[in-house]
């Protein structure tokens, strides 16, 4: 089976600062990778590489066996910690946007029957994340948790192959966080997603993922801390979330 994502000896440097080095990683479709590591070790950089926002300084990244496109595209959705939703669009407008952009390259808008169909799809997605009652609100009128659920709905309505989450729940309080965990797990199962999720909370990482990637420096020079980059120090298969899926993924990975 072709891996969904494959890093082949990827290095990422900014000037003389090495951020990531000798990164080799194979991720099968349907895996839920949680990523933890010290602040500044390059977790966001890894997601930006996957987005295509940055290109590796060395090595290459394959998506379904093909070189990863060098710019963001609809096959890779993302939820940032902040600024993931468009402040000038209503809740419905935010989710409708992707559908409109796909269908109307010039006007970026849909009208009539096409719009009604897209609207139904968007509303169904919003109901799935529990925002069916807030269609007309603007993001500034939503709580932090609601904004992140909106960002999820907005990404998932495009049916991406890969979902990237950069500390999406970092700013939420514990109760809402738990709700969001259930939501993400459900959406992951229902949408056949491959997920990369950065988190600062290692318990969250253990609970959610099928695989936990720990990033840290592999070697360290006290005189030149920027000389060496981080790599994967632990790559742990885990499965508290869903043992069945984990077994499948593991079996698929060995085939």
């Amino acid at each position: 089976m072709t891996p969904r994502i494959r890093f082949e000896n990827v290095w990422m440097t900014y000037g003389d600062q090495v951020v990531l080095e000798r990164l080799n990683l194979t991720v099968a479709p349907g895996e839920f990778c949680t990523i933890v590591g010290a602040s500044g070790c390059g977790k966001t950089t890894l997601l930006r590489l996957l987005l295509g926002e940055e290109t590796p300084s060395r090595g290459r990244i394959l998506l379904d066996g093909e070189p990863l496109p060098a710019e963001p595209g609809p096959d890779r959705g993302i939820v940032f910690q902040r600024y993931s939703v468009f402040p000038h669009l209503s809740v419905l407008g935010n989710v409708l946007l992707g559908l409109e952009l796909r269908a109307a390259p010039v006007t970026g808008r849909l009208f009539g029957g096409a719009r009604r169909n897209a609207r139904d799809e968007a509303v169904a997605m919003l109901e799935a994340v529990g925002l069916g009652q807030s269609l007309g609100k603007y993001p500034t009128q939503l709580s932090g948790g609601m904004q992140q659920r909106l960002a999820l709905a907005q990404s998932l309505v495009m049916h991406p192959r890969i979902l990237l989450l950069d500390e999406p729940f970092g700013a939420l309080d514990p109760g809402i966080r738990r709700d969001m965990h259930e939501l993400v797990l459900r959406l992951w199962r229902e949408n056949n997603l491959t997920v990369f999720m950065v988190t600062h909370d290692i318990r969250e990482g253990f609970y959610l993922g099928t695989r936990l990637l720990v990033f840290d420096k592999l070697r360290y020079d006290p005189d030149a801390p920027q000389a060496y980059g981080a790599g994967i120090t632990y790559d742990l298969p885990i499965g508290q979330a869903d043992p069945g899926t984990l077994a499948e993924v593991l079996a698929g990975g060995k085939r």
Binding site: L51, E53, I78, F80, Y83, L101, R109, Q154, M158
Partner: peptide, 16 residues
């Protein structure tokens, strides 16, 4: 970036 992950081309990003 988000707009690009929703499939927007440059014109659509400017417009929408």
């Amino acid at each position: 970036i988000k707009a690009q992950t929703l499939g927007a081309n440059s014109w659509q990003i400017v417009l929408r």
